[in-house]
Design a binder for these strands. Structure first.
Lengths: 197, 197
DNA sequence: GTAACCCCATACTCTGCCGTATGGAAGCTG
DNA sequence: CAGCTTCCATACGGCAGAGTATGGGGTTAC
């Protein structure tokens, strides 16, 4: 209860590191180079430190990945609440979802990286939970728009598929980014085609 | 010109191997474990041989990847001609495209594996060519259905995005496979929503 | 102030893959 | 059947990352 020094700064800002710092750095590395590139020594070099630190905080590489994925899942759940749990009418929530797609934010990049390894026993369950949770949110919104349960589910699958695919095309540089003028038109096209019922 | 023994069997069926055997095996390994898992010695073990053979046929690992991707690209071009180049009316061609998506055939699995590494300098160009070639075919079909050039392109991007995303969901096991009864309904839903104009 | 504890550096071993060198067996050639 | 080419096995050196052991510097607690 003493708590003489609160010190809520992330350890990276002090000299020492916390497990959370390693987890977040791991997620950023995954976002950039994919899961197979997650290695202890490169990660340590990235943090300007040696792996002696890592093996003090974590038993090994697998535990880091588990904790990092756990962290990412809770972050995603938080973002999902913000985007689709807002107190807006369903059509507006769905539009919000489509718009947010365009941002190549960290969470999206991590998601695509995880999609690349769906068969990994550590990744698969997390990925499956996150994906179906997102689709469920979409499905609820479509039901509120008047679609039947099965229609809402199919439409949700379609919308979500196009979301994931768009991320891929964006990574390939084959689709306009949201700075370019074409982008707004495309989003409008998607909303008209998939959301307006 | 002698050609005493034609012997068109793939080398794997004899004792010896040809470069084509290595390339095809490389593609299958990529389809299963992703690009980062493409390694010479594991591949050799898979073929029941040692790497002494490999380094006789290829200068190194990079050259194998290049040749394998080149091989895949030509295979994909061939498949594309079959699916969308057929002499059918445009709506029928597009339906064919959607239906073919469901098959988790080797080419599709390779494609998803390549999508995971779009930043790789060896993968990127090939992937970009294949993707835009496929989208172009779609775009032509939509134009023949009466859409304007820009509308056709946007619709093609959307259809193709949903294709890529569907592959991902399929890999996660979150979407019905084409054996299951729900699948036909979903495909019908997709065609009604995205193809019928 | 000093003892205890937290965090990290350093120096190993071990494993897996890359690429090279070299020799040997099988098949064609004359 | 000699000789050459083709294809593969084996054995080596090198590198990168995993994980362990151990010691040391900085901080906290009493």
């Amino acid at each position: 209860m003493s708590n003489s020094t609160p010190d809520n700064r992330s350890g990276a800002e002090r000299g020492r590191l916390t497990p959370a710092d390693w987890e977040q750095a791991a997620l950023e590395l995954i976002a950039e180079k994919g899961i197979s590139a997650l290695a202890v020594e490169p990660l340590a070099r990235r943090l300007g430190i040696t792996k002696g630190s890592f093996y003090w905080h974590f038993p090994g590489k697998d535990e880091l990945l588990d904790k990092a994925l756990e962290r990412w899942e809770s972050q995603d759940r938080y973002h999902l609440k913000l985007a689709l749990g807002a107190d807006l009418d369903p059509a507006e929530r769905l539009s919000q979802f489509v718009w947010r797609t365009s941002r190549q934010t960290l969470t999206h990049r991590i998601y695509t990286a995880l999609c690349a390894a769906p068969d990994d026993p550590r990744v698969g369950p997390v990925l499956k939970r996150v994906t179906s949770r997102r689709i469920d949110y979409l499905s609820v919104a479509f039901q509120e728009l008047g679609l039947s349960a099965s229609d809402a589910r199919q439409r949700s699958n379609l919308v979500y598929s196009s979301y994931v695919g768009y991320l891929q095309l964006q990574a390939q540089g084959l689709v306009p980014d949201r700075d370019e003028p074409d982008f707004d038109q495309y989003v409008q096209h998607v909303i008209e085609t998939l959301v307006d019922v």
